[in-house]
C-alpha cells in the first residue's frame, strides 16, 4: 500500500522499484534503475510500516504500508535538496547540465526557492586533465553513481570516495589524482550516469539550448516514471 493505494511487487524489488514500476513516483536522486541501490541521498525517504527509511533500499513485502506524499516528508525532502545546494557550489546559470540536472529538477519539483542554509562555498578546483571529459567537483552531490558505474559496468574502478563527513569527496584512481591519468574514457558508463554537472564531456556546450532540455519539457516526477523498468506487458 502506497499512500492508500495498493502497489504490486516482485520478489527482490525494493519499495521504490515497485512503486516506479507501478507508475507511482517517489522522489529520488542517488538511485538509478541500472545500479545497485545505495541509499545515501535519502530523498526517497518514506514512512514504511511507521518507520522512516530510504525506500530505494527497503525490500518490498506483502502488507507493507508506505506513506510518501505527506507534508512532513515533503519538508524533509525539500530540506535535503536545500542542504545539497548549500553544500556545493551550484551555479546553475553557467552550468552545461542545467535543464538536464536531476538536483535542479528535484528542486523545481519540490518547490525549493532557496538553499535557506548558509552557503558553505567550498573551494573545489576542477579537473580538466582528461582529453575528452572534465570534472567539476563543485557540483558533485556524492551520489556515488560514477563509482558504482565504473566498478560494476566499466570494470575500471576509476572513482572512489575519500575523507569523511563534510570533507568527503570524490577521487580518481591515479597517483596524481587526475582524471587524465586514469583509464577513464568518454564512452564509460560512469560518464553518462552523473545526475548533475560534475562529470561532463568536453567540447559540448549548450548544443541543446536552455529551455529545450529534458526537465524543461516535463518535471522529473514524470520523467522518472517514463524511465522506470517495467515487467513485460505492463505499460505505464
Amino acid at each position: 500500500m502506497l499512500d492508500g493505494a495498493p502497489v504490486p511487487f516482485e520478489p527482490g524489488q525494493t519499495v521504490l522499484q515497485a512503486a516506479l514500476a507501478a507508475d507511482r513516483y517517489i522522489p529520488h536522486l542517488c538511485y538509478h534503475p541500472e545500479f545497485r541501490p545505495h541509499g545515501s541521498c535519502k530523498l526517497c525517504t518514506a514512512s514504511v510500516g511507521g518507520r522512516l527509511v530510504a525506500t530505494c533500499t527497503t525490500p518490498a513485502e506483502a502488507g507493507l504500508v508506505v506513506d510518501s506524499e505527506t507534508p512532513q516528508l515533503r519538508d524533509v525532502r525539500r530540506t535535503l535538496v536545500q542542504m545539497l545546494f548549500a553544500e556545493g557550489n551550484h551555479f546553475c546559470p553557467s552550468c552545461e547540465k542545467s535543464g538536464n540536472c536531476q538536483l535542479q529538477a528535484q528542486g523545481s519539483d519540490l518547490g525549493v526557492t532557496t538553499a535557506g542554509f548558509r552557503h558553505l562555498y567550498p573551494d573545489r578546483p576542477i579537473d580538466a586533465s582528461h582529453p575528452d571529459a572534465w570534472i567539476d567537483f563543485n557540483r558533485c552531490v556524492l551520489c556515488e553513481l560514477c563509482v558504482r558505474a565504473s566498478d560494476e559496468v566499466d570494470g575500471k574502478h576509476v572513482f572512489a570516495l575519500a575523507g569523511r563527513g563534510l570533507t568527503k569527496h570524490l577521487i580518481v584512481n591515479a597517483p596524481s589524482n587526475r582524471l587524465g591519468d586514469t583509464t577513464f574514457a568518454a564512452s564509460d558508463e560512469a560518464m553518462q550516469v552523473c545526475p548533475v554537472g560534475a562529470i561532463l564531456p568536453k567540447r559540448v556546450g549548450f548544443a541543446v539550448p536552455i529551455g529545450s532540455r529534458r526537465y524543461d519539457q516535463r518535471p522529473v516526477s514524470a520523467q522518472a516514471l517514463d524511465d522506470a523498468p517495467r515487467p513485460a506487458g505492463r505499460s505505464p
Binding site: 545546494f85 557550489n89 551550484h90 551555479f91 546553475c92 546559470p93 553557467s94 526557492t113 532557496t114 538553499a115 552557503h119 562555498y121 567550498p122 573551494d123 573545489r124
Partner: peptide, 18 residues
C-alpha cells in the same frame, strides 16, 4: 523578496568566494 540567483545564492559575484 530576494529576486534572482545572485540575491538567493550569491550567484555570479560569489564565484570569487574561493
Amino acid at each position: 523578496i530576494a529576486l534572482g540567483a545572485c540575491a538567493i545564492t550569491g550567484g555570479l559575484p560569489a564565484q570569487r568566494n574561493h
